[in-house]
C-alpha cells in the first residue's frame, strides 16, 4: 500500500511540474510539448486510480487530438510568445 502511495506521489509531482512548465515557457511549441507530457501523466494517474476508460479517453484526446490541433494553430499563427 505504501508503494502505491509512493507511485501516486511521483506521478502527481510530475503533473504539477509539467503543468507549471506549459504555462511559463516562452516558446509555444515547447509549451505544447509540455502539455502533451502533462496529459500523458494524467492518463497514467487515471489508470492507477482504476479508471481505464477515462484513461483511454484522456490519452486519445490529450495526446492525439489536442497536440495535432495546437500544432495546426501554431502553424497558422506565431510560434514565439512576446
Amino acid at each position: 500500500m505504501e508503494l502505491e502511495l509512493l507511485m501516486h506521489g511521483i506521478v502527481l509531482a510530475l503533473i504539477i511540474i509539467t503543468a507549471y512548465l506549459s504555462l511559463t515557457l516562452e516558446d509555444i511549441l515547447a509549451s505544447v510539448i509540455s502539455f502533451a507530457a502533462m496529459s500523458l501523466l494524467l492518463a497514467l494517474e487515471f489508470y492507477m486510480l482504476q479508471a481505464p476508460d477515462v484513461a483511454m479517453a484522456e490519452a486519445a484526446i490529450g495526446a492525439g487530438l489536442t497536440t495535432a490541433i495546437f500544432i495546426l494553430a501554431i502553424k497558422k499563427t506565431e510560434r514565439w510568445d512576446v
Binding site: L29, I33, P52, A59, A63, G64, T67, A68, K75
Partner: peptide, 22 residues
C-alpha cells in the same frame, strides 16, 4: 488494463509525428 497501453502506443506515435512534421 492492457488495452489502454495498446491504444496509447498508437497515439503517442501520431503526436510525435505531428510535432516532427511541423
Amino acid at each position: 488494463l492492457i488495452d489502454v497501453a495498446i491504444v496509447y502506443a498508437i497515439l503517442a506515435f501520431v503526436a510525435t509525428l505531428y510535432i516532427s512534421k511541423y
